[in-house]
Design a protein around this nucleic acid. Sequence first.
DNA 1: ACCCAATATGAACAATGTTCATATTGGCCG
DNA 2: CGGCCAATATGAACATTGTTCATATTGGGT
Lengths: 211, 211
Amino acid sequence: MTKSKPSAKHGYHKGNLRDRLIAAAELVLQQEELDALSLRRVAREVGVAPSAIYNHFANLDELLAAIAAHGYRQLEALERKTYTSITDRESCLRELARDYLHFAADNPSLYRLMFSRAVVGYRSLPEVNEAGDSTFKLSVEWWYGEGSYDPEKSAIAYPYALAVWSLCHGAALQMLDGMVTMGDQADISVDALADALMDVFLHGALKGIAK
Amino acid sequence: MTKSKPSAKHGYHKGNLRDRLIAAAELVLQQEELDALSLRRVAREVGVAPSAIYNHFANLDELLAAIAAHGYRQLEALERKTYTSITDRESCLRELARDYLHFAADNPSLYRLMFSRAVVGYRSLPEVNEAGDSTFKLSVEWWYGEGSYDPEKSAIAYPYALAVWSLCHGAALQMLDGMVTMGDQADISVDALADALMDVFLHGALKGIAK
DNA sequence: ACCCAATATGAACAATGTTCATATTGGCCG
DNA sequence: CGGCCAATATGAACATTGTTCATATTGGGT
């Protein structure tokens, strides 16, 4: 039979628990801080015993990794859409930065999880290895140009890719931590922040150094 | 009597426990990962009951904040030294970036703690508020120029300060997470990384965009 | 129709942060 | 010099966390 109705009452085999766990976790992340997410909390949310999770994930880190991987794919899809739709290189780069900061602003807890120590570094799931670098790979690819991979240009493009990505990541974290006040005005829109950063990034800071 | 010998045997009043707790915590951070640091671990390290800590800190977050504040002051001193010793603006900026990344590379766990959620955001200790922004304040001050604060230049300088700091912070995290491979070569020196980033930052990325 | 592998349970364990009643002690006031 | 109090340290307790394991249930394939 097709397992089309896994939502029945409460039994032992409740359908694919894996996806439901991830979905529940994402819901928690949307509404609360990252530290509200715990293995037992997710189990509670789904209405299942904590130990049941271990039938689908080796441990908590793997669950977190799976959630993060989903986040990476979302972000990557977002970026790729802009990447393929805007032809003007500079406009595209600016829009990519806006996309990135918007993603972080809209999903603060998820963003924090994606770059938490539990997910990054512990290369438990190959799924995360692939999805995790997606954004950065996209960035490198962007700088390489539309052509195929060229080792000659690689050494030139890589620093650019590393720099934008570091810039955006650092700015995203500062933004989430409420550290961006942009001088006097207490608040600043995400777009304005992205634009200001990209202005500096594109034109360089040498002019700002002029004594 | 002077309490010059607090190291005696084991008694109730063992000298100023506060400083010894912080020192012990810093030692743990120097040798292990951030998640190895716990309230009970620090108590164990000092040879004291866990609850004794609550005579000196309201809770774990305050202990972490105090440790982080110490780290902030170290970093700030490091930066200020370069800040005041190198007159050439561009050379100074490059050296500041190197200093920053070296601090992160030399104290990975402490650096992670300093920018962890437990420390940033929870503005429990005013000590952290002051020390925490020191590096960034220093950066803003640097861009303002040596003169006194000028609101007119503020709006111009702030984006630069925000950008360098975001860039360095993002790069530091990526470095600590082993995400910096600089193209083909697996490893790259901290100095080389800093220089590469500052090249892009100083001269701008527009030239890298040329199709 | 049966059986087994997959899945879910519940009780247990260690470790964590925190609280509280209790015990000790150093320094101050008489 | 003696006594007392506030500061400090203890140890036992509690709730919560991740994890393990023996046990129970069940759905799909032969």
